[in-house]
Design a binder for these strands. Structure first.
Lengths: 167, 167
DNA sequence: ACAAACTTTCATTTATTATTGAAAGTTCGA
DNA sequence: TCGAACTTTCAATAATAAATGAAAGTTTGT
């Protein structure tokens, strides 16, 4: 396989993977492209390589920056902006975890707490509902805490986790 | 909040969460509904509660059964089929992890291995590509192994992980 | 072997989500 | 302060994904 082909395959695969995890394809592709670029890339070049419009590039770059995993860079004497991705994988995972926790898990926890707190008539049906949603709340809370704790290690957290868990 | 309202809110929330994680809304809603039902539910009742068509219900129940997190149940003297969800959360998490690993992570790993194995000319560009995709391969492989190891505990794995990790 | 009771399939339709591109906005140098 | 070079916004459009529903399929009791 030649470099260009490999790069393209990587970008496509990363994009498809993104879709399956609820991240829009172009966003994941831009991220992939920046991850494997050895130097910062202009919006123009991103548009060209991925064959996407200016608006699309702009919006998804903004989203990636909101996630904190892509950065703007300014080059001396250049008017236009360049972009780079976070390339440290531990850091990348930490940021993605934090964002998903904040955006999705925390709000879900809030709802779980609410719905598990209804004052139930004691029908079997309602008792089961309260019981099950309470368990779910506890479970998700615990999982969220674990994630948080793991990412606190920050540096090399996955490797450290491997050590802890394998023995 | 009344029971019916709480149940509905839970089902809606679970559905929305599903979407954000790449699982279709109805599939997640059916799963939510079954999770909090104290007894097996017929297809007719699912259609009624979620206001969906027969075809939709059938297809998503099939998908949930393929994931191994919803089961068919037969009641004595009843012609129609009833459905229940896996209610043990450890078991549920294990099954979801296994499936996502099999369907998404493993294939991605295959591609990462491929693209990181190109014979690079030694341009900085190509060297960086090989380096970065190799790192990514190692990272994803390690993460997948951790997931696997964790779910091997099966019983109460999250609680055990909490113990390991917090100290 | 038939028909009632039920489930599955899949071509068509509908809903959702992503993308485009042109206009508006911004920044910077002269 | 003007205008060139660039970026952002957002209404319109296109692409994708999900849902419908009627026909085909299956199972079971008689």
């Amino acid at each position: 396989m030649k470099f260009k082909e490999a790069k393209n395959k990587f970008v496509q695969t990363w994009g498809a993977l993104g879709s399956q995890w609820g991240i829009n394809k172009t966003m994941a592709q831009i991220h992939a492209l920046l991850m494997v670029s050895h130097e910062a890339v202009s919006m123009e070049d991103i548009m060209e390589e991925l064959q996407i419009s200016r608006g699309n590039a702009s919006m998804n770059l903004r989203a990636l920056m909101d996630w904190g995993i892509v950065y703007k860079e300014y080059k001396a004497g250049e008017r236009r902006e360049f972009f780079t991705a976070e390339k440290d994988l531990d850091e990348l995972a930490v940021k993605i975890s934090r964002e998903r926790s904040k955006r999705e898990i925390k709000p879900a926890l809030k709802v779980l707490k609410e719905v598990s707190s209804i004052t139930s008539d004691n029908t079997a049906e309602e008792k089961h509902f309260v019981d099950q949603t309470t368990k779910l709340y506890d479970f998700v809370l615990k999982a969220d805490n674990v994630l948080d704790k793991m990412t606190e290690y920050k540096d090399n957290w996955l490797a450290k986790l491997v050590v802890k868990i394998m023995k």
